[in-house]
Design a protein around this nucleic acid. Structure first.
Lengths: 218, 218
DNA sequence: AAGCACCATGTAACATGTCAGTTTGAGCCG
DNA sequence: CGGCTCAAACTGACATGTTACATGGTGCTT
């Protein structure tokens, strides 16, 4: 018999829903949230909503302004580049560790993710491409087998995922280039060239910051 | 005129108190906490206590077990080495950025911190040494001017600070070596040798993991 | 004496009430 | 018409009540 898994607490469930709503753009950047209204919408009391918002605040997805309201985060160039820099650091470090500790498993995971992306590309399915992309990068981070890295990564990419959605038109143009970069990166990993792989990965990640700069200028 | 700073919310105040209590060892590792009892002790209601515990959980200082209780974290070798690895990564990366962006200011900050430590050492004041040490490392992280780094660092070192307290007897023996390492590191920074400085810093941080291993073996 | 069901107690999760600070806009005055 | 005042509505912070679950002990059964 399987042990009965604890059903998610309402708080977690609420946090998940909100996170998804923000990342998918269902809630606009900078939108004003009200604990009361969210509670009504989700049919729960204010307590789990409040707890969930506290979590999201610690993830940087919302900012709480005391007695004024809670708002979806609004990125600026500085924050975005800081986040990208941080993400690049985490991923390149994880990649080096992964190449040492788990090269074979890492390559398998990357392969699977690239497959997903390739199929999504052929099917003209942008959401699928995004899912594959996230899996690709997640496999890098997880290959480090350092849970502190992984946790920190989760916290860092939340806002970046949301940004990606909002930069969709710009990002969509570059899926071809993105695909090529993923493959080059994987090739470098296969040849066990951590220095080249890290450089490729760094540049790849920094494209998001560049896309944001373009958007901001417009 | 200075803007009037918002007085801390009860939740923040509570979180700070608990954080200090854990880091100083006033609350033992693994100790069971009860929202109700904490609320009574701190003379606040359960709400801010609950919120504060949620924060501390996201910092890894406590673990909440649904319907059972909240407990101060208990480290194991794996977690400690993961945290140290993560901390080393953040600090070395920050150091490289700091040397690029802020070498002069960084050296000033380091100097001040080393002064503190030196004075504490002469006065045989271990708490003062610890304060100086934290200031030294904080100045490195802050020199990166990347707030995402800084935030991540704060989250990572909480448990390590608590550990340091509990490894006090072991760590106290090595303050001399620690002092020497700080000075060597600073010298490497002054000569603008990021590679050497990073290596020194990495090894320096990893001493904590080694101390924990010794303690665990005992 | 050992195994068992049962119950008292403690816990966090969740619901709801109250309060003080903030925002907003309707209405008044210049 | 424009600026001002002020009260009402809204908001999150905090307090407290209620519920479901986990646990440890007690006494019955065998």
């Amino acid at each position: 018999m399987q042990p009965i898994s604890q059903p998610k607490s309402l708080m977690e469930e609420t946090a998940d829903r909100l996170r998804i709503a923000i990342v998918t753009g269902e809630l606009a950047l900078g939108a004003k949230l009200s604990e009361q209204r969210l509670a009504n919408t989700l049919q729960v009391s204010r307590s789990p909503v409040r707890d969930a918002l506290a979590i999201l605040q610690s993830e940087g997805l919302v900012t709480v302004s005391p007695k004024r309201g809670t708002f979806v985060f609004t990125p600026d160039m500085r924050v975005v580049s800081e986040l990208c820099e941080h993400r690049s650091l985490l991923e390149t470090a994880a990649l080096r560790l992964g190449l040492e500790r788990n090269q074979a498993a890492l390559l398998d995971q990357m392969d699977a993710a690239i497959d997903l992306m390739q199929k999504a590309l052929e099917a003209n399915n942008p959401a699928g491409y995004t899912a594959g992309d996230q899996r690709f990068h997640r496999s890098i981070v997880e290959s480090s087998e350092n849970r502190s890295f992984i946790r920190s990564y989760e916290l860092t990419i939340g806002p970046l995922k949301a940004l990606r959605t909002h930069l969709f038109t710009i990002m969509a143009e570059s899926t071809d280039r993105s695909m090529v970069e993923h493959k080059k990166l994987m090739a470098a990993c296969r040849r066990h060239d951590p220095d080249l792989a890290s450089k490729l990965l760094w540049d790849h990640i920094m494209h998001l910051a560049e896309a944001f700069k373009i958007k901001e200028a417009a």
